[in-house]
Design a protein around this nucleic acid. Structure first.
Lengths: 240, 240
DNA sequence: CATGTTTAGGTCATTGTGACCATAGCTATC
DNA sequence: GATAGCTATGGTCACAATGACCTAAACATG
């Protein structure tokens, strides 16, 4: 099938391909990322992004889904999953040329990750902690995490992925918290409500309500069909 | 360096990695994409996206730049180049598992591609032609092209990449033509001018003018420093 | 029943937008 | 040299969207 290329395999070496995942969720009013911590020497205590090799006969998306389910024990089809970028600097691994296809996954407060074997444990780590230069050592994982965070923040503006963080049914306050926690600054509840409900098919009212311990009951919503958000949610004044 | 993964190379096969480029430019008031046509049998006359294998010790971006320069004879550093997505379906190539990292390149009306050898020729093909199902046969190249087009169209909205299509210095009409040709519908010249000049550092006036054969001379501009466009250019009413 | 808390919804001045219109400044032609 | 034709530039105006507020509704608690 590679029929009209001059190059064949000359000049290339076999390469190994992995997928790495940046899995975000919201816990305790903070954005968290799933990291894998090695429990035994060598490299005890070091964190990496979850990931692994793509297997024979497996698509990239399938590999990402499999890793996602292995690490979180959750059905990946209920999450938002998209490709971030492929990192392939020569020199990432001395033994073999390796590429990693980075994925971004967004989901509602996920179950505690499956109990780790004694060799590796999955942990939800606050993103602010994970970004600290002392936490992520491996490869270019810090860079991947930063890019995933930038992508997630940007996509909240002009797409409806924010709803992927919310378990259905959800309140508008739940949805607003997604924006506030991801962007790091508060939004006006009233103006937020106006934008979300006026946007075309971002959310759909269920007609039901949720009574928390305090305050007026909140109307419950489900995700709409729209993928793009128009008009977009702006964060221009707080752009960093 | 792959130190905290359970999997080693078990269950994986060596893979070959290529880069493929979607190179857009504007010629004769239409969006064109660079395609490679095979001049000799077998597969004579078939078109593919330009691309090739990543070489030893070469970054992905470097490989994309090299292919870009090989096919167009242009200094790739003057173009906008960004990664699109990695395509890696098993079964793309029966001989060996192959992945292709697709890149999107945007540039001003580029020189006629380098004269092809008798085996392969580079051609500027109108995108409307290239999207026709009879043109692109190889692999998933039609899908890659479509995704590149979608990405380019979307990025015109909220980034300043449109200016990458314009050779400096350019007029606001030049810039507007980029939007019109890429999006496929006309924009009001007056409102376009207002948005572009009010946006923060999208373009900078040079103080000079260009006299075409007809009409009032147009002020000349250069690209500003801004990467994101605020407020964004909207195309909501024409969304397809 | 008063108070606190959260949701729901309204007001209003300001800004951005889309659809126009008018003028400026050039070339080509009569 | 006047005029027509053309494009660039700038302005108007009604309307929509936005941000900063404010008020009321609907619950729980003491």
């Amino acid at each position: 099938m590679i029929h009209d290329r001059e190059q064949k395999y000359d000049g290339t070496v076999p390469a190994a391909v992995t997928v790495d995942l940046v899995i975000f969720t919201i816990r305790d009013a903070a954005l968290h990322v799933l990291l894998i911590r090695r429990g035994k020497p060598p490299f005890e205590g070091e964190f990496t992004l979850p990931g692994g090799f793509v297997r024979v006969g497996e698509n990239l998306d399938e590999a990402a889904l499999r890793e996602l389910e292995e690490e979180t024990g959750v059905d990946g089809r209920t999450l938002h999953l998209e490709q971030l970028r492929t990192f392939g600097d020569s020199g990432r691994d001395p033994r073999c040329r390796t590429y990693t296809v980075a994925y971004l996954a967004l989901g509602p407060d996920l179950p505690i990750p499956v109990a780790g074997t004694d060799a590796r444990e999955a942990h939800w780590v606050p993103v602010s902690t994970a970004l600290s230069p002392t936490v992520l050592h491996a490869f270019d994982h810090a860079e991947i995490l930063k890019e995933g965070l930038d992508r997630a923040r940007a996509k909240l503006e002009y797409t409806t992925v924010a709803a992927a963080f919310c378990r259905e049914p959800f309140t508008l306050a739940d949805l607003r918290h997604v924006y506030e926690v991801t962007w790091g600054f508060p939004l006006d509840p009233s103006n937020f409500r106006r934008k979300v409900t006026k946007a075309v098919d971002f959310v759909r009212a269920t007609g039901e309500f949720r009574s928390l311990e305090v305050g007026r009951p909140a109307a419950l919503y489900r995700r709409g069909q729209a993928e793009n958000l128009f008009p977009p949610m702006t964060r221009a004044d707080h752009n960093s």
